[in-house]
Write a protein that binds this DNA or RNA. Sequence first.
DNA 1: CTGAAAGCGCTTACAG
DNA 2: CTGAAAGCGCTTACAG
Lengths: 356, 356
Amino acid sequence: MPGRRKITLKDVAAAAGVSPTAVSRHVNGRIDLPAETAERIDSAIRRLNYRPNARARHLAMGSTRTLGFITTDIGYPFFAAIASAAEEEVAKSGFSLAVFNSRNHVDRELLFLSKIEDGQLDGALFMTNHVDDGTLRDAINHCGKVVVLDEDVPGAKAPRIFVDNEAGGLIATRHLIAQGHRRIAFVSGPEGMTSSCERFSGFRAALGEAGLVVDPDLVCFGVYEEASGSEAFQQLWRGPIHPTAILATADLLAIGILRATRAAKIKTPRELSVIGFDDMLHMDLLDPPLTAVRQSIHELGRRGARVLLDLLAGTADTDVIERVPVELILRGSVAPPKSAVGPARLVKLAAGGEPR
Amino acid sequence: MPGRRKITLKDVAAAAGVSPTAVSRHVNGRIDLPAETAERIDSAIRRLNYRPNARARHLAMGSTRTLGFITTDIGYPFFAAIASAAEEEVAKSGFSLAVFNSRNHVDRELLFLSKIEDGQLDGALFMTNHVDDGTLRDAINHCGKVVVLDEDVPGAKAPRIFVDNEAGGLIATRHLIAQGHRRIAFVSGPEGMTSSCERFSGFRAALGEAGLVVDPDLVCFGVYEEASGSEAFQQLWRGPIHPTAILATADLLAIGILRATRAAKIKTPRELSVIGFDDMLHMDLLDPPLTAVRQSIHELGRRGARVLLDLLAGTADTDVIERVPVELILRGSVAPPKSAVGPARLVKLAAGGEPR
DNA sequence: CTGAAAGCGCTTACAG
DNA sequence: CTGAAAGCGCTTACAG
């Protein structure tokens, strides 16, 4: 057995008695060789156990066939689900997906984004969770080839895939109102963020429809983390009037709220209804099962990847904005307020006489 | 402004009046230049806005500084948590982590593993969820540079990071026995897998300690998926004797069981106690809160990454096997069997007279 | 210490 | 159609 030197294109060419050019073209299917020649090359490849070197290809082709997935933390089920869908989609096109946890730090986001300039990444799916002061926008505009997912980076010249945030806020709030709630709190992420703003618009619109108005004491902006949900609950409970329901604009916030209600011995949904936003895996098994606005997480990842791939192929423009639909998933964390006679009950009375 | 041609090392060298060699060495910190020269280079870099091309470096250096994370599906919280910890660790050393969802298909696992041979990946963290017929073992031995995580690939010459499976099975079963259970079912993944076997050993050992013996009718092997847990429950409930408790060797199985109990109107834990294995995020919020053997998921990812990094650096050998500890997390999904007087109750009676 | 030159292993415009 | 040769943009052994 010969020395264990790495087999290259050249070796194959020599063994098959053709030029490296021919082998390269054949391997990449960019040529139709006479059957006899093709077979000679193939057999040489098999015999030598040749494997094209990806690094050399990358340099020569000016591409690495790897896309980045930049997010706060892949450890969170919501992001992980998006990453999974994105991976599935990019893999179909022969790309790989590299994940980067920014932990919501701008410097890390910038570092990861810069890998596009390096030529280490062909492009990236980008998710952030804080308000941008323009830094992110500039970085994205500078390196290009990124699509912004789920949360906006205002001013960035990049395709965006969002959820229909306003509709989400709207239908969730309508549901609460239909259940008879009047004192509804809004617990959200950072005030300046697009998701917060849009969901808040939906919230306000639904209140308006019912002739209600937003009570500033019942609105809490924070960050998209569990602890922020717990704090919001505590703040609300210290306040002058307790809400009978809370619309949390993230499951993580809802979970924080649920945790805090337990500590405070508040019964959900009897004393407090809670709606989440995202509908992550297994939210139906919580106690109580979480009613939530479902974002089509899979669709978000899949379409984000698709658009990024199209962008790289030049068949998509940087001004596309897609909205994936939302849907309200009814579960046990919402009930009529204990002190109120909700419309549902009124209807029952009207329709069926004595309720039993 | 000059043409938008990509700035290279050469350009910087020319602008600074030094050789490309000097620039390369300076950039990589492999040289101490006279302050004046260094400054000239640095300023040229800034002025030209030079960014070293990663693809060229990769080819020249024979490394891509990217590690693979090959798993069934990053969308599952358990794997996502491991990936997150691994990413954090490899990022410290300037590596990236690319995730690959095998969906538990051997052909995809092989495809991803082959990226190491390609030179596309410097190495990989590998997790599988099916019994290997030798294919995986051969592939791993052929490409090297992989560390096997959580589940064994027998015969592979690769470092392994496992959980103390046997201890996990043991302490979980002991707990059930201490609560008064005698008819305990064992619901697990594939029969031939190391995790299943080792956890089963612990299970059997604990039964043995209590003078009990394994009842084959109460042992269900399947796959590590939710649906498999549901099926196991149904099978158990069709059987001649119902267990009063189930030890599931994965949270996903426990969740499947929980789902099935709801459909069957079986109350947990009153009519059936359930213990899971993994302790994924938010398992404490389930209804009932899941008692589970906690694997140190973070530790698994972190140490796996560490060992892989060491392996690449040549400071770790392929025969290391690390075991991360397990811990039983007591929560609400376990209670004494309703028909039995458990030791806990006996103790109470003995110690405090009339229980109220 | 410093730099000219070869080399990493492909792809592809270009000439025959 | 086919292949010799240049090029991708770095790193690094080697000679001065």
